[in-house]
Design a protein around this nucleic acid. Structure first.
Lengths: 341, 341
DNA sequence: GCCGACTACTAAACCGCTCTAGTGACTGGG
DNA sequence: CCCAGTCACTAGAGCGGTTTAGTAGTCGGC
């Protein structure tokens, strides 16, 4: 027998389709005896709801959408994303909601996908990542009236809910730590300046420099690639007065920077301290292991998933969740600067 | 105006629903003039098909499923998967087919998901990865009658189509290369022995040893984690007669192994040559950069996507595609063994 | 004994689209 | 001139659910 439908069940039990629907959805309208009988027969026939049919009636699609606007080839190298994805999965699968994933080239294409998926009823909600400084997506998604959670914050995402960690606070803690070690010349190999979190980190470092009276502090934007991370490091270490500490906006760039230091004969942490603004196996696998800001990206993912599910269940709800500020895991790549600093 | 339906278009143009459906799907049954008019109005009204409604009529779901049975937390660290995912995306999005992704704990749960998705008509096909030696999934998916492509081969996947690269050939080329350099004691830090490709690689190495007359060659299974990769390396390097070359089944383990060598004062490539059986930024970012077997995982992904789409379009088709054998990219981690070998 | 309220259920509309059977107009061949 | 065949299109069933309106039957109260 092919796919049994509720009609088959209804016939077999000797009731109407409607009764079966009520029974299967735990809705009032059938007696307990009948409900039990229906459930039993459904079980026997191995019945499963046809998602399309359900969705057609205006119900849930049973999936949420994540669209990532990055060149597809670079996605593979970001431990962050894979971790986040895993966490999202864990959170969603608890309610057997699927994740619909799409990688597109640019924000324009991304917006087009939101439009399409929303109008196709393909998903019940969206997850927005990589928030830009003036992000057009927020407005569009708000306009679509589809529940959505923004990863990043605080503020700047209209009426959408968000899950965020305090980048600013984290950067301040790094600056404090480096200053306490005695570093005065600190460089920051940043990410794309169009991202909100990049901006926040740069601003935080600038503020720290002023407050702590650090002489030479600079943030240098990159595209997050290992290549630019390496190139920027090479440039920094070629300066006559090289920085004694470098903070990298991603673990990948930090590892690339460590490689450059090795290649140029700069000892880590003797001549140069390195801190990564993101953690993963990468930082622990290299030698010396990198001091890094760790946060539980997996947990972040589950948090986002839960937020989104909550909003889907109760539209209109707005929920801003701040996750724990990343903490500095001190490993072997940081030390007081050499005396000749 | 909310979502326009084909009925709205029909009313506006002054034709029937059927005509609109024909026109929008490029099917015969309407005149060119009417078709043009309908398309124009559909465009004006910004109409999009409701996927659920389409799927209900027995048509395509417009999505394919990928279920991965691994602890979710470890997924994040495998560059391979993210790359594959990107490639899949690229291949699928060409026909705007979505990818439904789910990470589960074990094979049992994975099979349950196949069952559910198939009966829910949620996807049009499946992609099976991590093929085990005696894999129960193949049989189940065959039984479901849903198109599927297996990543891995050759053989051992029943009537399902497959996309595969020649692991055996690749391992032979590594053995040949190391033997030519003069290595006679070679260790192989393998992956999970339940995987088909792990078995194939181990067998190939054994065969090579016999053929080339290599004295001491051994394969040591691990769980693919950086931790076990490091531990196994530590064990190998503590032996009185340590190997002069180690082949790692993944780039992650190779990097971990490199770290252990550094920690134990074993020079790479002076005292020890290292080869990774998989390539990614990881191998290029460390120092010395690792000699590795490179293949285009992204291309592999698009290949799988295309195969699957072909089978969905034409059920019953069976298509085994062999992708180019991975080639050895020689970098800085391999050299002839020290004389005292 | 009758009314109203409640329970347990049925019948059927509906969601948006596809697809088949059918219809009317026109064409062309014998 | 009539009939068969094509063309362009319509009407409506059907996909598998949900949901609403309606309907018997029962029960309690006065």
């Amino acid at each position: 027998m092919a796919r049994p439908t509720i009609d088959d069940i209804a016939r077999r039990v000797g009731v109407s389709k409607g009764a079966v629907s009520f029974a299967l959805n735990g809705r009032p309208g059938v007696s307990e005896a009948t409900r039990a009988r229906i459930l039993q027969v459904a079980e026997e026939m191995n019945w499963r709801p046809h998602t399309a049919a359900r969705a057609l009636g205006g119900a849930r699609a049973g999936a949420v959408g994540l669209v990532i606007a990055r060149p597809a080839r670079t996605l593979g190298v970001e431990p962050f994303f894979a971790q986040l994805l895993s966490g999202l999965q864990a959170g969603l699968s608890a309610q057997s909601v699927a994740l619909e994933l799409l990688v597109v080239e640019d924000t324009e294409a991304e917006i087009e996908v939101y439009r399409r998926w929303a109008s196709e009823h393909r998903v019940d909600g969206f997850i927005l990542v990589d928030l830009k400084v003036r992000d057009t997506r927020v407005e569009v998604v708000e306009g679509l009236g589809v529940p959505a959670v923004v990863l990043g914050g605080p503020g700047r995402h209209g009426s959408l809910s968000s899950v965020w960690a305090d980048d600013r606070e984290a950067m301040l803690s790094i600056a404090d730590y480096l200053a306490a070690l005695g570093h005065r010349r600190i460089a920051h190999v940043a990410g794309l300046p169009t991202f909100q979190h990049t901006q926040r980190r740069m601003r935080a470092l600038r503020d720290s420099a002023r407050r702590l009276g650090l002489a030479e502090v600079s943030s240098l934007p990159t595209d997050f690639s290992d290549a630019e991370g390496a190139a920027t490091t090479r440039m920094l270490l070629s300066r006559p007065r090289r920085p004694t500490a470098i903070v990298y906006d991603s673990d990948l760039m930090a590892v690339a920077g460590l490689g450059v230091a090795g290649e140029m004969g700069v000892a880590v942490p003797g001549d140069l301290s390195i801190i990564a603004f993101d953690d993963s196996v990468l930082t622990r696998i290299v030698h010396p292991a990198l001091t890094a800001l760790t946060r539980d990206t997996f947990a972040l993912g589950t948090e986002v998933a839960e937020s989104l599910l909550a909003i889907i269940a109760e539209p209109g709800l707005r929920r801003d969740r701040r996750t724990p500020t990343p903490r500095l895991a001190v490993r072997e790549s940081t030390a007081p600067p050499a005396l000749a600093g």
